[in-house]
């Protein structure tokens, strides 16, 4: 985060006034951290929203894969974080194509030998995946969700059940935004939600 300026980071927030943006251009990260001025505190809060979304998506996004090195997953960020999240995965999974998207937007990133190749389009994720499967003439998909679900359930300690803490740490809005299915079942209030309808 520190490699981006305060105003660059603030611009990722979907809801930012021109007044705050102008003010942020003169500020360092240190200024933001130590100020008690109400506008600066508001900038800190808005940056916090973006940071939180990036952090949560980096944790909660789930990938399936096609042809070993094409990883795809669902994200629907509230802020303008799709590109930054996709790039962070491309750097983590070098030489793999990272495809993230939703019904209206797709971000693709590929990182190799210190270089990014990027693509994005206002298209449906599913249509883009179908196009890629045609291009590579391969439609095998690996889904290890069942293994994950088994492992995840193995970590539960009945005597320590605490759903309030679970809801606090895994808010539905982030589970939905990251296409996370297994844990979303636990955070569903209705049967339809549980059945992922």
């Amino acid at each position: 985060m520190q490699s981006m300026s305060v105003s660059e980071y603030l611009l990722l927030n979907k809801n930012i006034s021109s007044n705050l943006l102008e003010k942020s251009k003169k500020m360092s990260w240190h200024d933001i951290n130590i100020s008690a001025d109400s506008d600066t505190v508001e900038i800190r809060r808005k940056i916090g929203e973006v940071r939180s979304e990036i952090h949560k998506l980096r944790g909660f996004v789930r990938f399936n894969s096609i042809n070993d090195n094409i990883l795809f997953g669902y994200i629907k960020p509230q802020h303008k974080t799709g590109r930054i999240v996709t790039d962070s995965f491309a750097k983590r999974f070098q030489n793999n194509i990272i495809i993230l998207g939703n019904e209206k937007m797709v971000w693709i990133s590929y990182y190799s030998k210190n270089n990014y190749l990027r693509y994005e389009d206002k298209k449906n994720l599913k249509d883009t995946l179908d196009r890629i499967k045609l291009l590579i003439k391969d439609d095998r998909e690996l889904d290890i969700e069942k293994i994950w679900e088994t492992y995840y359930n193995s970590q539960f300690i009945k005597e320590r059940e605490d759903h309030n803490l679970f809801y606090k740490n895994m808010p539905r809005k982030y589970l939905r935004a990251s296409g996370n299915k297994v844990e979303l079942k636990l955070n569903s209030k209705t049967l339809d939600e549980y059945m992922d309808k």
């Binding site: 983590r92 309030n164 679970f166 606090k168 740490n169």
Partner: peptide, 28 residues
């Protein structure tokens, strides 16, 4: 270059159990 994965200075929770505990690793 040419490796798989990286690490984070702040750590990342990839899930939470119904106990509210972080799941960050494949603990086995």
């Amino acid at each position: 270059n040419g490796i798989l994965g990286n690490v984070s200075r702040s750590g990342i929770c990839h899930s939470f159990t119904p106990n509210g505990r972080c799941v960050s690793m494949f603990k086995t």
